[in-house]
Nucleic acid binder design. Structure first.
Lengths: 138, 138
DNA sequence: AATGCATTGATACATTTAGTACAATTATGG
DNA sequence: CCATAATTGTACTAAATGTATCAATGCATT
């Protein structure tokens, strides 16, 4: 299941940027189940050649999808569909995501035998530092 | 004590090079005492297979650690943790490890648009929960 | 026409993978 | 004990892959 040909139809006259069309169609194929988690996408250069497009354009599309956590681009390795996220981030799912993230962090920190006060201290310091550097909100 | 399984968690999506992640985690585990002088690390090929990574990538990490005198790679024999660093250096490594770990955690959490108070709350809740479950220490 | 912006293209680069060969050490079998 | 094989790290080359940066292009607004 990890090998599957990605078929995209680019309309060069549509007015829509090419990278947007790539983003949309990959998203659609994931939503429809054609593309599944861990599937590997074509390399930026391979897809670019197939679409007769500059590989930077494909890279841009991949970067957008990566930032949206839809795919995972890995330098030197390739590009893969990530585990499917719930389409709607309900409040409960949001909370679960943060709890999972925090649990991984604390498990690792405690495994490395950092004390709870050290952890609290570091968290506070860094949050404070980010306050001063960026928008002091919250 | 010279036999101990090295457990590394590589995040292929983190953007950090794989060899850097290996370096950081080995350093952290030495600083925390999980890995001790004369402990043998997995062979480059064994660790590579476990991490699903090319053995050159592991070799690169080992070479960096070797150049930093943190481990000793010995052709034909294996790689071993060197004698312990001065406590000063160990403490610095420990601190850096926690700061790096925390930074990654906060960056991810903030990127997902969790508020600082949400983060603080979740950290506190989970630390409290771990207190009650295990030995309430510190 | 001029300016500014978004898109695309060109180029150099960092990382990872792959393959091969080699040297040093250790394990094995006679 | 010795010869040989297997293990282990090292070195090197080449190719694949995504990344970063800036230039060129086209288009809209002024």
């Amino acid at each position: 299941m990890a090998n599957k040909k990605l078929i995209l139809q680019i309309d060069f006259r549509s007015g829509l940027p090419i990278y947007t069309q790539i983003v949309n169609q990959v998203q659609a194929q994931i939503a429809s189940g054609i593309l599944q988690p861990d599937d590997q996408l074509p390399t930026v250069r391979a897809l670019a050649e197939e679409l007769r497009v500059n590989f930077n354009t494909v890279a841009r599309a991949y970067r957008i999808l990566d930032e949206a956590r839809i795919i995972s681009t890995q330098q030197g390795r390739g590009t893969f569909i990530t585990e499917s996220l719930p389409p709607k981030a309900t409040e409960r799912l949001r909370r679960e995501a943060l709890e999972a993230l925090t649990q991984r962090y604390l498990s690792e920190a405690l495994r490395l035998e950092f004390s709870k006060s050290e952890i609290r201290q570091t968290i506070n310091d860094q949050l404070k530092a980010r306050n001063e550097a960026n928008e002091p909100k919250e």
